[in-house]
């Protein structure tokens, strides 16, 4: 029997008033995939992640997780299966830690309150240890550097053992010297086989971490393939134009 795709987005439509963000975007992802999404700014890369997290309404289409209907339109409304939503985790550009809770409580709040997970503290300490943050367990977010905050945010998302982890420009707000520590954590997760969907502007990092690169523009997927193809040898003219422009800017 063929195993269901981890994530399947089918004919996704999304518009804000007159502005169409997605015009029938389709995309599928296997368990072993680490998908990096690239594309022009304002093209809806972050919106796509937010939709997969269940944070946005959609205008049409459907999303499946593990072959089960996760997000769909029904009776003019967006229906989200919250059981499936709980299996997706997300890390945001601006950390979104809870400022009034210390680091340990940031990690344990959701597991304890929503799932009644026992020994959440031990698990949290193990994660902090793994990311080199054990000494900060009792510190507050305002006392941490941006890089540390983002590593905490990743640990917090991991507390719920997500089947899929979304990263929305997680290094864009960081000072350049702090980017590496966050990317190192993500590489470590990749080595452990964590399925990820990543939006980033760092093409070098994209090449290192991606198993597949998706170029999305004009509301659809334009090109989808291994990084060597999409970044180095794009098959579609529109992708080539974008990649050349991005790399030209870097030089």
């Amino acid at each position: 029997m063929v195993q269901d795709k981890l994530l399947k987005i089918h004919n996704l439509h999304k518009s804000y008033g007159d502005l169409d963000i997605f015009k029938g975007l389709s995309l599928a992802m296997d368990r072993g995939d680490r998908l990096v999404i690239i594309g022009p700014s304002g093209g809806g890369k972050s919106t796509l992640l937010r939709i997969v997290m269940g944070l946005e309404d959609i205008t049409g289409g459907d999303v499946y997780l593990d072959g089960k209907p996760y997000i769909l339109r029904d009776g003019g409304k967006t229906k989200i299966d919250h059981k499936l939503q709980a299996r997706v985790g997300m890390v945001f550009q601006h950390y979104t830690l809870f400022p009034h809770l210390d680091i340990l409580r940031n990690l344990t709040l959701a597991p304890v309150k929503t799932r009644g997970i026992p020994r959440a503290e031990a698990k949290a300490m193990a994660l902090l240890e793994r990311f080199g943050l054990a000494a900060k367990a009792r510190a507050y977010p305002s006392q941490l550097s941006g890089g540390q905050k983002q590593r905490v945010a990743i640990a917090r998302a991991l507390m719920l053992d997500p089947d899929l982890l979304l990263f929305d420009e997680v290094t864009s707000a960081l000072d350049p010297e702090l980017v590496a520590e966050v990317e190192a954590v993500m590489m470590e997760l990749a080595d452990h086989g964590m399925p990820m969907m990543i939006v980033t502007h760092d093409m070098h990092f994209a090449r290192n971490i991606a198993s597949r690169v998706v170029f999305a523009a004009g509301g659809v997927v334009v090109e989808d393939g291994p990084p060597e193809q999409v970044l180095d040898n794009p098959q579609v003219a529109r992708t080539r134009e974008f990649v050349e422009r991005v790399f030209a800017r870097k030089k």
């Binding site: 269940g54 944070l55 945001f92 709040l109 959701a110 309150k113 719920l160």
Partner: peptide
């Protein structure tokens, strides 16, 4: 708004969200 996003991503809803995220933030 990001705090609400974070809650949704962590499955924190309803009273838990009000009690542990919105109220502490708002009261301060």
């Amino acid at each position: 708004r990001e705090q609400y996003d974070a809650c949704a991503a962590l499955g924190l809803g309803g009273w838990s969200r009000v009690r542990h995220v919105v109220l502490p933030h708002a009261l301060r």
